[in-house]
Design a protein around this nucleic acid. Sequence first.
DNA 1: TATTGTTATACTCTATAACTATA
DNA 2: TATAGTTATAGAGTATAACAATA
Lengths: 151, 151
Amino acid sequence: MGGNGREPAPTARLLAESTGWLLNDAARELTLKLEEVLKADDLRWRDYGVLVVLEAAGPLSQQEIGRRLAVDRSTMVHIIDVLEHRGLVARSRDLHDRRAYAIELTDPGRSLLVDRLHPLTAEVHSGVVGRLTPEDGAHLNRILSQLARGG
Amino acid sequence: MGGNGREPAPTARLLAESTGWLLNDAARELTLKLEEVLKADDLRWRDYGVLVVLEAAGPLSQQEIGRRLAVDRSTMVHIIDVLEHRGLVARSRDLHDRRAYAIELTDPGRSLLVDRLHPLTAEVHSGVVGRLTPEDGAHLNRILSQLARGG
DNA sequence: TATTGTTATACTCTATAACTATA
DNA sequence: TATAGTTATAGAGTATAACAATA
């Protein structure tokens, strides 16, 4: 089921397995700290993710945003509702497919992201990843990128 | 708030921040695949975590297991209930503190873990982490260990 | 016939508060 | 007075299934 049928050697098994736990612990620590910081702006980690995705990719449909964040389209409705109500994103119809919206960052949304959220979250990230030497930090980034590409 | 007040340079900010997203993606991918495999034994990732913790540490109280897995003690009750009912763990009173249980693996629990679950989950882990060269895998493990110790 | 957004709904997960027995 | 386990309960988060508009 996605494996290759080969039995990994015991040490490789232990190494890979502890990597999994460590990965989860690191991700959980980071997410918890991010949520704590974002609470001041009444945002969840998911909301921040939506803004970041839109900043990076430009206007997207609700479903496409959900795809990138692993969130169901029915769940996206409420998330976008709130962000729209707060004036951080805008719904306009996709010109080429009028079933879909083109969700885009508003100017206030972009300002909040750039002037406030990015600095806040960067500090959290640095507080965690910054415990590493710059070399290890860069290495970690490169290795994780490789993991992501392989999926 | 855990930070050190220093403004990280823009590239460092981006590097650290993308590391955060990558970390989360990798952890999510791993957890999803583990849950899929464990479903055959009607276990969740959390249940597997309990068994692994007990295997590694020996008998523990419910609360201590929860502490290590970031699960509330009230949530632990049901998790242990199910595992006990399936004969995978046993509740006995802690000899030194009769308020607490000493939860321990049963022989069937240990067998399930060693003979079946570890091979299954190791294959998932290897399928993900094994996309890296052995050097990068070991390096990733070392870097993540360092992150965990720093927390 | 398939797809986007939507709604209602049900389900899972989790934490909170109050209780009991021990400490 | 504090702590381990328990229980009931309420809240958040999520997915599922059906529907309307559009493709």
